[in-house]
């Protein structure tokens, strides 16, 4: 049984097939990188996994059980939490309140949520901006904050969409370190990224997509050595 699995997921927008039979599985405690060129369907896949889009065909299994009629709210309560590529923090609430809200929404008591929020603020090095409105934080700090919101209640699986894009190297390191620590403690994570060095360093296994299909999946180094993958990235006759 896998933590999260997808079977034959298909999704079209108008006449264009964004996903064309995507199948993969993520084991408990795995840290998997999802890579692929722009437009390969990574974000569409994430949107389906988190209930923001309904697939045209196929099914998603969480803990081996199929999830039907999934909405973002249901996904969150079943333990699938995601981080967006374009940050979605609550801009006119303080950073701490953002975290407390995320905790309460998943059933933490007020006091417990506050204590947990303070821990995370410290771990993500956001202490000095914790009482500022989230909208006044820098782009990187907002990413860290949203990242923290996904871990207020440890999810069954965290879906991270481009957490490292356009983030200061220091913050990138804070985030990578955080992911590494959680992974060591058994957290299951799917991380979408264009940042190959980070993926190679962080994720033992990877899934590569192109044009709505999975090109290769398995050990990261093998996936990256796959000639189809190289072709997809270099566009055409290479390899």
């Amino acid at each position: 049984m896998n933590a999260l699995a997808a079977r034959g997921i298909a999704k079209s927008f108008g006449g264009r097939k964004a996903l064309d039979g995507v199948t993969f599985a993520i084991d408990y405690g795995e840290l998997v990188g999802l890579i692929g060129p722009n437009g390969s369907g990574k974000t569409t896949l994430l949107n389906i996994l988190s209930g923001h889009l309904v697939p045209d065909a196929g099914e998603i299994l969480l803990d081996g059980k199929p999830m039907h009629g999934m909405t973002p709210v249901r996904a969150a309560h079943s333990g699938i939490l995601r981080m967006f590529q374009l940050t979605r923090v609550f801009r006119r609430m303080s950073a701490l309140d953002n975290l407390v809200t995320a905790g309460c929404a998943l059933g933490l008591e007020f006091g417990a949520a506050q204590a947990r929020a303070r821990e995370l603020v410290e771990e993500l090095r956001l202490e000095h901006v914790a009482t500022l409105d989230a909208g006044n934080l820098s782009g990187g700090q907002q990413k860290l904050l949203e990242f923290g919101c996904c871990f207020m209640v440890p999810p069954k699986i965290a879906l991270l969409d481009e957490p490292f894009a356009a983030v200061h190297p220091t913050m990138k390191e804070i985030m990578a370190e955080f992911i590494r620590r959680r992974h060591a403690a058994g957290q299951t994570v799917l991380v979408v990224s264009h940042d190959m060095p980070v993926i190679v360093e962080l994720c033992r296994s990877a899934i590569c997509m192109n044009a709505g299909v999975v090109l290769a999946a398995g050990e990261t180094r093998e996936v990256l050595a796959n000639h189809q993958v190289i072709e997809a990235y270099l566009g055409g006759e290479a390899a």
Binding site: H52, P72, L81, F84, R88, F90, N98, F110
Partner: peptide, 21 residues
């Protein structure tokens, strides 16, 4: 907590739903 949820919905409805509100 109701106050927090309302403000979260005001600031970002999609984000609020994704957090489980």
């Amino acid at each position: 907590r109701a106050g927090l949820y309302l403000m979260a919905i005001r600031d970002d409805e999609i984000g609020a739903a994704s957090r489980g509100i």
